[in-house]
Design a protein around this nucleic acid. Structure first.
Length: 296
DNA sequence: CACTTGACCTGTCCGC
DNA sequence: TGCGGACAGGTCAAGT
C-alpha cells in the first residue's frame, strides 16, 4: 500500500535513474492502466527525454523535456520497477533476480527507453493508473487541487494540522487522517502508527481532541513518516522501490498488523477493529475512547 | 454540505 | 484437494 514514504522512495529512485533517458516505445497490456491516445503517445511521449521525477501526496509525476508529464498513481498494488542493461546495482541486489522475470502477469504498462532500459508498471489489482498530460495542466487536476499540505514540509506545524482538521470536526480522527484533502499522503499504516504514538483512540471525534493531543498527533505523524522514509517505506506484500527493493519500516511498527501481540509501551494485547471501513490496530489501554458525559 | 458506504480488482487465506 | 467467501485498502461515485 504505497503511502507517502513508499511513493517518495520510488520517486527518489526514479529521479536518480531516469533523467536523460529517451522514451522509445510504450506497451500497454491493460487499457485501463494508461490513458493517453495513440496519437498523443506518438506525438508527446515517443522521443521525449525524462527531465525530472516529482511527487505530490501519493502521486508521482515523470516530467518530460517536451512540456508533458506522466502522472502516476500506484493505488494499492502498483510498482514502478526499473531495469537497465547499463546501470549495475551490485552483486546480490534484488534487481538482478528480476532480470528476465519482467514483464510478468501483473505488468500493465512497459516504457522502453532508447538505451534499452525499461520501466515496468506492475499492478496486481489494476487500481493504479498512468495519465499523459501537458505539464501545465497537472496542477489543475481536480484531485491535486484539493490535496492538503505535505506533512514532511517545514510549513506543516501543529497549528496547520489543527486548522486542517477543522473541516472534519464531526468525523473520527482516523477517517480525517485518511482524507487526502486534510493532509496529503497518509494511509492506513501511518494513520494507525501515529495514533498509537499520540495515544489517541482512532474513533475519537475530531471535535473532542484537545490541543495537547493535536500537538502529540502532529509530532507522531512527522516522526513516523520520517522513520519510514529512512527505512525505505513499508512492504506488506507488494511494495518495492524503483530498483525492486522492499522497505523495512514494518519491523519498527508498534501496532500495524500486530493484533494479538503486546503493546511495546504497556504490554496490553493489541486489538484490531474496523474504523472508517478500514482494519484499524490499536492498544486498548494506551488509546482509550473518552465518552463525553453530561456534567450536572 | 458533511459524512458513510460500495465499487473498482486480484491474490491469499480460512473454514468446510 | 477444492470451493466459497472474507479480506486486503486508495480513491471516487453514489448514497444517507
Amino acid at each position: 500500500m504505497p503511502e507517502l514514504p513508499e511513493v517518495e522512495t520510488v520517486r527518489s529512485g526514479l529521479d536518480r535513474l531516469l533523467p536523460g533517458l529517451i522514451v522509445k516505445s510504450v506497451t500497454c497490456q491493460n487499457p485501463k492502466s494508461f490513458s493517453g491516445s495513440a496519437a498523443d503517445v506518438k506525438q508527446f511521449l515517443t522521443g521525449a527525454a525524462v527531465s525530472k521525477v516529482n511527487r505530490r501526496a501519493k502521486v508521482l509525476m515523470i516530467e518530460l523535456s517536451n512540456q508533458h508529464t506522466l502522472v502516476i498513481h500506484l493505488k494499492m498494488t502498483g510498482q514502478l520497477v526499473f531495469q537497465s542493461t547499463n546501470v549495475r546495482f551490485g552483486a546480490g541486489h534484488p534487481n538482478d533476480s528480476l532480470v528476465g522475470q519482467l514483464p510478468d502477469k501483473s505488468t500493465r504498462v512497459t516504457l522502453e527507453f532508447a538505451d534499452g532500459s525499461r520501466l515496468f508498471f506492475n499492478d496486481q489489482r489494476k487500481f493504479g493508473w498512468i495519465r499523459l498530460l501537458p505539464t501545465a495542466e497537472v496542477p489543475g487536476m481536480a484531485f491535486i487541487q484539493k490535496l492538503g499540505p505535505e506533512p514532511l514540509e517545514s510549513q506543516f506545524t501543529w497549528q496547520v494540522l489543527k486548522d486542517r482538521l477543522h473541516r472534519r470536526l464531526k468525523t473520527n480522527i482516523k477517517a480525517a487522517l485518511l482524507d487526502q484533502t486534510v493532509i496529503a499522503g497518509v494511509g492506513n499504516i501511518y494513520a494507525d502508527e501515529s495514533l498509537w504514538g499520540a495515544k489517541i483512540h482512532p474513533q475519537t471525534r475530531v471535535q473532542q481532541l484537545s490541543t495537547p493531543q493535536i500537538k502529540a498527533l502532529h509530532d507522531a505523524l512527522v516522526s513516523v513518516l520520517r522513520l519510514s522514509l529512512q527505512q525505505g517505506g513499508s512492504t506488506d506484500r507488494n511494495y518495492v522501490d524503483a530498483e525492486g527493493r522492499k522497505g523495512s519500516y514494518l519491523s519498527f511498527a508498534k501496532v500495524f498488523r500486530r493484533e494479538g501481540q503486546t503493546c511495546p509501551r504497556c504490554g496490553t494485547t493489541i486489538v484490531k477493529i474496523r474504523v472508517a471501513g478500514r482494519g484499524t490496530h490499536l492498544c486498548p489501554h494506551c488509546q482509550r475512547l473518552h465518552i463525553p458525559r453530561i456534567v450536572s
